[in-house]
């Protein structure tokens, strides 16, 4: 092994340890008895399930609108495209509590959009819809950027050939572009879901209740201290680890197919 490989390997290893040590330390510091007791607490499991569910709906909702947007960003050239791309990245840059306040100002009952939704029976303050909305807002860039990169990597001539062979633009999208960008899109979906699960700042502004797992961890930490907050965090980490390992494995299987 040459010196360059050693240096790069060591740098990578240090970064991995930086991520892994706090997580491992937290998992192993948890008292198994308290962990087992926490796992059977209905409030904790309901909160974790709610978090996974809301993040899932946020991801599906964003996929429906975000994948076509990613395709447009990858394939079309138009005035203001870079501004639009910057707008997509904005939720990553602004503080998430600020994002929550911005969402509250639009989807709260004082603004016409919030009023219109309320009229249709959809409220965003203190509801599951509000949680999903906050999660979608802050994690959308992960999906759109990944899908856009996926579409950009496809040789446009594949789509052109499909059209000359008789496929409509929509059929070309569904039979050529979408399957070929599947891996980056799946990766973006997983990242977006993961980011949605971990969201705290925007969610707490829109919906303190019903309580998502990150809000529950924070609430237990401020009310009862570290010993009571840690088991919930550990359970959430373990569940997420299992789910994302399975999803990554599925993604890998698709790659091999």
């Amino acid at each position: 092994m040459n010196r360059f490989s050693l240096v790069t390997g060591a740098a990578g290893a240090l970064l991995l340890l930086f991520v892994a040590i706090p997580v491992i330390r937290m998992i192993f510091a948890a008292d198994p008895a308290i962990l087992a007791k926490t796992m059977v607490e209905p409030g904790v499991m309901a909160s974790i399930f709610l978090t996974l569910k809301c993040a899932f709906f946020a991801t599906m909702f964003s996929a429906f609108f975000g994948i076509p947007l990613a395709f447009i960003l990858a394939r079309w050239n138009f005035f203001g495209k870079s501004i639009l791309s910057g707008l997509i990245d904005l939720p990553v840059m602004i503080p998430h509590t600020a994002a929550g306040i911005a969402l509250l100002m639009v989807f709260g009952k004082r603004f016409f959009i919030g009023k219109a939704f309320a009229h249709a029976g959809i409220g965003f303050v203190g509801t599951e819809a509000g949680i999903s909305l906050a999660m979608a807002f802050v994690s959308l860039p992960f999906l759109v950027n990944s899908a856009r990169d996926g579409f950009s990597a496809i040789d446009p001539r594949l789509e052109r050939v499909a059209e000359t062979l008789g496929a409509s633009a929509a059929l070309t999208f569904f039979t050529i572009s979408l399957p070929l960008a599947f891996r980056p899109i799946l990766s973006g979906l997983i990242m977006m879901w993961a980011r949605g699960i971990s969201e705290f700042g925007a969610v707490i502004i829109l919906a303190y209740h019903p309580m998502t797992a990150p809000v529950l961890v924070w609430e237990r930490f401020t009310s009862f201290g570290l010993a009571y907050a840690r088991p919930v965090a550990v359970i959430l980490i373990l569940i997420c680890l299992v789910i994302f390992s399975i999803l990554r494995f599925i993604g890998k299987q698709q790659r091999g197919a």
Binding site: D155, L158, R160, V161, E163, G166, A167, S168, A169
Partner: peptide
């Protein structure tokens, strides 16, 4: 549209799916 012209196209690198 390209689909309505009834032409077959073969590119330099073949553009196979």
């Amino acid at each position: 549209r390209p689909s309505g012209r009834g032409l077959g196209v073969v590119y330099q690198d073949y553009a196979l799916f």
